[in-house]
C-alpha cells in the first residue's frame, strides 16, 4: 500500500478541481477488479503478451507502443496521433473502450463504476515506475465520471439534416466505406458514432482535424450525422 500513500496529495488536488469524481482508489480492491482482465492481460514480474499486451510499465507508454504485440489499426493510429496511457486516458478508455478507439479488438464493454476504475488504475500504477521517483507522475487514484449524458445518447437524429451535414465528412471519409488512410464511418452503429464524436469534442480523442470538426457540432447535429451514416447504403 505504499504506492497508495504517495498518491494521496495528487488525488486531493484533483478532487478540488474536478466536478464529478470517485474516491481515491485502493490497490487491493483494484487487484480484485483486475480478475476480469486476467483472461487477456498479464501484469507483474513474469507478465507476457497474451491475447492482450502485458501491462507492466503502462503509465507513460504510447498507445500501441509495445514492440512485438500486434495492435489493431485503430490503436496504431491513436498511438501515432499521440495517445499515451496516463490515469486520465486510462479512465476514459476503461469506462468505454470504443469511445477512444472505435476499432479496438478489446472485447470488453467497459467498467462503468468510476470507483472500480479508480481501484484498478491504482493497482496497475504499481507496475509502472514508482511515482515517488517522478515528480510529475500521474495522479492515478482518482477517476472522473465521463459518461455521456444519457439524454445525449437518447437524442433521435434527423437523417435529412445528417445527409446535408455529412458533406463535411465525405470530403475525407468515403461514403462508399473505403478505408485508405482515413477510417470508414459508413454503417457505423449510431451509439458508437455519438460516443466517438463527443470524445473528439471533449478532446478525449486527440486528432486535431476531428477535434476541430466535432468541436462545433451541436448534440443534435451529432445525432443527425449518426442517424444518417448508420443506414447509408451505396
Amino acid at each position: 500500500m505504499r504506492a497508495f500513500q504517495y498518491l494521496m496529495p495528487f488525488a486531493l488536488v484533483g478532487l478540488m478541481a474536478l466536478p464529478s469524481h470517485a474516491d481515491t482508489g485502493d490497490a487491493e480492491l483494484g487487484e480484485k477488479v483486475f480478475q476480469q482482465c486476467k483472461g487477456c492481460h498479464q501484469v507483474g514480474a513474469s507478465a507476457k503478451n497474451r491475447i492482450g499486451p502485458h501491462l507492466n510499465g503502462l503509465f507513460g507508454r504510447k498507445a500501441a507502443g509495445l514492440e512485438g504485440f500486434k495492435y489493431s489499426k485503430s490503436f496504431q493510429r491513436a498511438g501515432a496521433g499521440g495517445l499515451e496511457w496516463h490515469a486520465d486516458t486510462l479512465d476514459v478508455f476503461l469506462e468505454n473502450p470504443r469511445a477512444m478507439t472505435s476499432g479496438t479488438r478489446m472485447s470488453y464493454r467497459g467498467l462503468k463504476d468510476a470507483q472500480d476504475r479508480a481501484h484498478l488504475i491504482v493497482y496497475l500504477r504499481q507496475f509502472s515506475d514508482n511515482p515517488a521517483n517522478i515528480p510529475e507522475a500521474d495522479p492515478t487514484a482518482q477517476a472522473v465520471d465521463h459518461d455521456l449524458d444519457p439524454a445525449i445518447l437518447a437524442l433521435v437524429g434527423d437523417p435529412e439534416y445528417g445527409e446535408y451535414l455529412s458533406g463535411e465528412c465525405t470530403t475525407c471519409h468515403q461514403a462508399a466505406g473505403g478505408d485508405d488512410g482515413i477510417p470508414s464511418i459508413t454503417l457505423w452503429p449510431e451509439d458508437q458514432f455519438v460516443v466517438a464524436m463527443h470524445a473528439y469534442k471533449n478532446k478525449q480523442r486527440n486528432h486535431p482535424v476531428m477535434q476541430m470538426i466535432a468541436g462545433r457540432l451541436g448534440d443534435e447535429e451529432i445525432a443527425a450525422l449518426a442517424a444518417y451514416f448508420k443506414d447509408l447504403e451505396n
Binding site: 493510429r77 498511438g79 501515432a80 496521433g81 499521440g82 465525405t170 470530403t171 475525407c172 471519409h173 468515403q174 461514403a175 462508399a176 473505403g178 478505408d179 485508405d180 488512410g181 482515413i182 482535424v209
Partner: peptide, 21 residues
C-alpha cells in the same frame, strides 16, 4: 516521425475521399 507519417497517410486517405466525393 510517427506523427508526420500518420499525417501523410491521412492525406492519401483524403485524396481517395475527395476524389470519390
Amino acid at each position: 516521425a510517427d506523427v508526420r507519417k500518420a499525417t501523410y497517410e491521412e492525406s492519401e486517405g483524403w485524396y481517395a475521399g475527395i476524389t470519390a466525393d
